[in-house]
Amino acid sequence: MLFATYKHCYRLLLCMSLGYSGLVFAVTAPVRLVTEAWPPMSFEQDGVPTGFGVELVNMLQVSLGQQQSIEVLPWARAYSIASTTPNVLLFATSISDERETHFDFIGPIATSKITLYAKADDSININQLSDVNAAGIVGVYRESVGAQLLQQQGVNALLVASFPQQSAKQLLFSRVRLWCQADLAVKHILEEVGAKESAIKPVYTLAEIRLYLAFSKGTPAETVQRWQTELEKRKESGEFARLYQKWFGTLPPPLENQIFWHKTD
């Protein structure tokens, strides 16, 4: 009887142990890391991912015991993967009505102004969004927040590219009159296409946005919370601010901490 009782207790402890191990695995299972070529936030240099967002995500994942490689993909592909597959981290992205149903967001990790740019010698004057339709074609890249903002406001004269560098070239070669881009990335994108900032000028700001790390629906809430906790630690220690200044100079880093859980039907 004593031996039978012992075996029963052993099995119970074993089941509890396996159940606990499964819980830990659900919390700490590595997430797939996807981003886009959007310097200085994320891009490849000699085939190696780099940029502010890449360095931040690598810093956080090491603390969480994860060593996943970061995939730098076209934005539309990265977004498609993250919006249809559980356990994926997409960065960096703003929050929109559509995205709120697909992702949990932590951050913010950066702020940026979505701006319309024209060639420096263009006499264009835009005072309100309704002036944009009459101005000419706007270059945007696929699934970007700028493209979504313009479409929502009824701006239909859009030339959609797969990469922001293509839109920059279209402006420089006068194939579009305006280029819609987040200001954080403009300098680096122009450098990539062999142009200087003096070649263009900002003519209208559509919105100021905050950028986040976005976890796909189906990612365990515990995983999202642990990433947020690690991000908070980096902000409190000053590491986040130092990394931000390395990539964005004197722009002030966003030091508040937020989690936005995805909306349910």
Rank of each mutant, 00 (worst) to 15 (best):
E71Q: 15
S96L: 01
S80L: 14
Q67Y: 09
L90I: 07
I95R: 14
I70W: 07
I95G: 01
G65D: 03
A78Y: 05
E100C: 06
H102A: 14
S83C: 08
T101K: 15
T84G: 07
A76M: 09
F91C: 07
H102L: 15
A92C: 06
V62D: 10
I81E: 08
D104R: 03
T84K: 13
Q66T: 04
S83D: 02
F91K: 02
F91P: 00
D97V: 10
W75T: 01
R99D: 01
T93G: 08
F91E: 04
Q67M: 11
V72K: 05
E98K: 09
S80Q: 15
S83G: 05
P86T: 08
I70R: 04
S94M: 02
S94Y: 01
I70D: 04
N87E: 09
D104K: 02
F103Q: 05
S63T: 02
E98L: 13
S63L: 12
A92T: 13
T84A: 14
S96K: 04
I95E: 10
D104M: 04
F91R: 01
S63A: 14
L64C: 08
S63D: 14
P74Y: 09
S96D: 15
S80I: 03
A76K: 12
T84L: 12
A78M: 09
N87R: 15
G65V: 10
E71Y: 02
E98F: 10
P86S: 12
P86Y: 06
T101N: 08
I70E: 07
P86F: 06
S63Y: 00
S63R: 15
A78E: 08
F105P: 00
T84H: 13
I81Y: 07
F103W: 05
S69K: 11
E71V: 03
T93M: 11
S83Q: 11
L64R: 13
F91N: 01
F103N: 04
I81Q: 04
Y79F: 14
H102N: 12
F105H: 03
T101P: 00
V62Q: 14
F105Q: 04
V88P: 00
F105N: 05
T85N: 10
V88S: 03
A92P: 00
L64A: 13
W75F: 14
F91H: 01
E100K: 14
P86H: 07
R77I: 12
P74K: 11
D97G: 02
V62E: 15
P74F: 11
R99A: 11
W75M: 10
L64S: 08
